[in-house]
Nucleic acid binder design. Structure first.
Lengths: 132, 132
DNA sequence: TTGCTACTGATAATGCAATATCAATAACGC
DNA sequence: GCGTTATTGATATTGCATTATCAGTAGCAA
């Protein structure tokens, strides 16, 4: 069979970008992070490598309303948590724990299988900055 | 000035589709709902009318992770609430109240301005149906 | 009823994220 | 080191939601 994969510096750099970030990244943000050490990484490569890692389970997709898909490492995704999205710098952050009390008022016949919580606001670095 | 607008059956039908639905609708869902009484409504018209109503404030946009934008009437949007998205029929429902206890564990320097909660599962009509 | 023009329907065009193509490059077993 | 071939970079292409175009239609004021 030809199920071979090779170890490249692009794959290593992309994966370590996620491991260092500890937060969900868009493909464009990954490219920006990797550009420091690999000034020529193509966005196509970033997409390809991310797709491969998602299929392998090393990365997990994370979607936000009205935003491009992001991805985070399986270590981050392993425990149930939610996200904070900074409306100023457009970075997403992991928040520990859940904080959702599910949920009075669910109509009869409705069954919940999962849930997403997104908090919006300004992050540490952006506090005080004008968000418009 | 030429700020005139005209009262058309398309606008009336589209607006009443939202008022009857009491839940967020995609443009395609609106078209499907209106097709009963106006078999020729164009999707372009649906988009145009929705855009106009959003600018007027009669409709409010609602985004879900990884899904096309939806809209709901300002009456629905007036009070803080969240949504349930049926993974079987892809319909969104309004849920009364909030149920979010904000939020132990927010890192220092982070300030919350708003939040979104989305519950996923199967709705009344779809319960028992295979969701795959 | 008539005339003006906002509105509509059909469809082409746009914007964007994501994927496919392909020649050139670089991993890695030998 | 060599050869095979997975991988890459650059770019074209797709897919989808949304918007623009434009000739024909229909509100609505006179």
């Amino acid at each position: 069979m030809s199920g071979n994969t090779r170890d490249t510096k692009q794959k290593r750099a992309i994966l370590s970008a996620f491991e260092e970030a500890h937060r969900p990244l868009t493909p464009v943000q990954v490219q920006a992070a990797v550009l420091r050490e690999l000034p020529k990484v193509s966005l196509a490569t970033v997409y390809r490598v991310i797709k491969t890692f998602v299929e392998q389970g090393s990365l997990v997709p994370v979607s936000f309303p009205g935003a491009a898909d992001r991805y985070e490492s399986k270590e981050c995704a392993a425990r149930h948590h939610h996200h904070f999205l900074c409306t100023s710098c457009d970075r997403a952050f992991d928040l520990p724990g859940c904080g959702l009390r599910v949920s009075s008022g669910l109509p009869d016949g409705f069954a919940i299988s999962r849930h997403e919580v997104v908090l919006y606001g300004s992050c540490d670095s952006c506090k005080g900055a004008t968000s418009i």
